[in-house]
Amino acid sequence: MKRKKTGELELFKEIWNERPHESEVSGELIYEFSVSCFAHVLSKGAYPSYRLDKRNIVLMTPEEHHLFDFKTDKAKQDKRFSWVFNRKEELVREYYDSQL
């Protein structure tokens, strides 16, 4: 089954070429390009207009990405993620301010 083009892959490649190949959370090196290393700060479902916003994409290891997406409470306890949750709050505020 062919997947619908969203523009994400192209955006991820652009980010990969612009940013250092390391986790923005831990600084751990990321040796090869993988879509699992690109985390959306705001979910694509709830905030579709932010899907292709570079500010909404953070490079992290696949393990960190899983923690951020599925074990949010645990990630919130890890100080290395604090700036990501701060960015999330900023983007949510910006989103709702733009709806006024």
Rank of each mutant, 00 (worst) to 15 (best):
E14C: 10
V41R: 07
W83T: 05
Y96F: 15
S98T: 11
A46Y: 12
R55V: 00
W16T: 00
L9S: 13
S36A: 14
L59H: 06
V35S: 14
V25Y: 01
L11C: 03
G27P: 01
E28L: 13
E32T: 11
Q99A: 07
L29V: 10
R3S: 15
Y31N: 09
K5A: 12
G45R: 03
C37Q: 07
S82R: 11
K79M: 06
E94Q: 14
L59W: 05
G7V: 02
F81G: 05
T6W: 09
L52P: 04
R93S: 13
K76Y: 10
R19V: 12
K71T: 08
V41G: 10
R80F: 10
E24H: 06
E28Y: 03
T61V: 13
N17R: 08
L9G: 10
E28V: 12
M1P: 08
R93A: 13
H40S: 01
Y50L: 11
E28T: 14
H65S: 04
K79V: 13
E63L: 12
A39R: 03
D53K: 02
Y47Q: 04
A75V: 06
F81R: 09
K4G: 04
Y95E: 04
R87G: 08
P20A: 10
P48Y: 05
L9I: 12
R87S: 11
L59F: 04
S43D: 11
